[in-house]
Design a protein around this nucleic acid. Structure first.
Lengths: 226, 226
DNA sequence: CAATTATCTAACTAACTTGTCAGTTGTTAT
DNA sequence: ATAACAACTGACAAGTTAGTTAGATAATTG
């Protein structure tokens, strides 16, 4: 390790890195400030010096995480791709958040447990998602015009589903393993899952050809027993 | 409240009910034994008397939850329905776990944080899921034979996706609300979501007619940049 | 090189948390 | 009725946790 013995930026970064893993695996309440300090080989006071409180540290971890997600995605420009390829890339991109940032899902779970109060108060994080829905809407409209997607798909519904399909299998990996005895985290399983998700989302979006699907969304499902 | 002042069964049930809500909203580490005892209007010692430890109480809560899910599902017999209707009903059933047991998702999250160690050790819970995959496989095979579903669908992949689509929107309701400003928990939103999920799963399962879909699962996705 | 500032440390505290214990009161079987 | 048992209680103990304090040491600047 080069540089001087004392280095604020390096110490801060080391705390953040360890805190990310601690919060992701133990959630906010299960995380221990003492353990973070020990694992980061840092006196506990440094942690309070840089981040004010356990809660402040958690917020910093979240912002750092979202920041690095943004950095890895900003090169993408889905607007120029043909609609189906753009949608595929959006799915790949969502899926790759998991590969690049395995702690993200744990942090998201923890944040939901706290009713998302940190994200609600972080303008930066909310801004990150601003272009997403309009962008997806544009893709869907272009696809509908080109006849490859059916019309009337809601972009929020669709993005929630993409997120569901990509994240749930990982965030619930342990219960799924316990019940179905499958490992969903191996490289092979993740690739397989990405294919599956892509096929499912595209099947839903594609224009209808035959009479196989019933195009009446407002109709309620019939309960068999009645 | 009828009956005698002292009533073991009633006290035990009251503790379980309060503990379920506490563990579901605060997760295991965030839950407080003192708070459970206070809210259940019970001396803390009773809790240790009946359940041994905080961990024992959590296990009891999980088993109670799974038990009541099993009870509400055992009347269903998907084997006799036409394949597409059987699949619809499986989705409805999965979705209705949320409506009937809103705490289930919080408990599942908490259990995943603990690497599913309670579920792994509970034969009862694992048994509950035993018939699921064979049953779904049978539905998919009948559907493929009848020509309404395409062949080669993996029942585990499919069930993971059904669970994803039903649960994720609820377990991540707060971050989704913070980012997209949507309420996914109203009765209307839940019905809407069920329709969406049903359409997506069925679109994926339905037999292919046109040339719209590419039937080559092993093929890797092409990255546009390369 | 001296003075100032920032980084860092060890030890500590006040509050909290799970779990226990000794003893009391209601219920039930004889 | 009363003995035996089960349900229940208040107070406490042992250990843990987030957060603090006072001061030492390295880096920086005039």
């Amino acid at each position: 390790m080069p540089g001087p013995i004392r280095n604020a930026a390096r110490t801060r970064a080391r705390i953040l890195k360890i805190a990310t893993s601690e919060f992701a695996t133990k959630s906010f309440d299960g995380a221990r400030v003492d353990r973070i300090a020990a694992r980061a080989r840092v006196n506990k006071h440094m942690l309070y010096h840089y981040f004010g409180s356990k809660e402040g540290l958690f917020t910093a971890v979240l912002e750092e995480m979202y920041g690095s997600i943004r950095d890895s995605q900003q090169e993408m420009s889905l607007a120029e791709l043909p609609p189906e390829e753009a949608l595929r890339q959006l799915i790949v991109q969502t899926h790759e958040v998991i590969l690049a940032h395995p702690e993200f899902i744990g942090l998201l779970n923890s944040e939901n447990l706290m009713k998302a109060r940190h994200i609600r108060e972080s303008a930066m994080i909310r801004q990150l998602y601003d272009p997403l829905i309009p962008g997806l809407r544009a893709i869907l409209e272009r696809g509908a015009e080109a006849g490859v997607f059916r019309a009337g798909i809601d972009p929020v519904d669709l993005y929630v589903s993409i997120g569901s399909l990509c994240f749930h299998a990982i965030s619930n990996q342990h219960t799924l393993k316990a019940i179905f005895d499958v490992d969903l985290t191996s490289k092979a399983a993740l690739e397989r899952r990405l294919d599956h998700v892509t096929q499912m989302i595209l099947a839903y979006c594609r224009a209808e050809f035959g009479s196989a699907s019933q195009p009446a969304p407002p109709q309620r499902l019939s309960a068999i027993g009645n």
